[in-house]
Structure formats: C-alpha cells, structure tokens
Amino acid sequence: MAETTTTNSRSTVSRTTYLLTGVALLALLGLTVLAAEWKLGTWSVVIALAIAGTKALLILVFFMHLKVSDGLVRLAAATGFVWLAILIGLTLADYASRG
C-alpha cells in the first residue's frame, strides 16, 4: 500500500511539543501527590481534579492532536465530556440539596 504521505499527513505537532507535554504531565503528577499532603479539606479534591483536568487537556490537545484537528472532530471529542459533566453535575446537585 503506497500512500502519498504529503497529502495524507496533516499532523503538525512537533517533537519538542511532545517532549514538553510529557515533562509537564510528569511535573503535574508530582504536584498532585504534593498537594494531597497539604490536607486542605474540601479544597483537596478540587485541586486534585483541577490538576487531573489539566493533564487530560494536555493529552487531548497535543498527544491526541486536537490542536490540529478540524472543528467536527473537536466537537465529537467534546461531546462525551459535556454529557458526563451534565450527568455528574445534576446527580450531585440532587444529593447536595437533600435535607
């Protein structure tokens, strides 16, 4: 199978970007372990989820090429996370507002 890699390949994420993404991911892993030691009560889970969300975003944008994907693919990528946010958001709103 001979492909014309020039037209087929559209990925323009550089090796440097991949390296920086990888280093940032490991740094954020270190940060989340450190932050767990601070014992900030309710804020601990907020910080942990913010760090995890940042790591997920780095993977989605750079490793998974959303940075260079077109709008339709980005929209499809967002759907799962948007519905998940509604699912968990409304469920917790219910439990949090019970007497």
Partner: peptide
C-alpha cells in the same frame, strides 16, 4: 504517562 509519550 510515559507510555502515552512513546505512543505519540
């Protein structure tokens, strides 16, 4: 995380 880097 490193395995994701090698995959990329």
């Amino acid at each position: 995380l490193v395995s994701s880097y090698t995959m990329a």
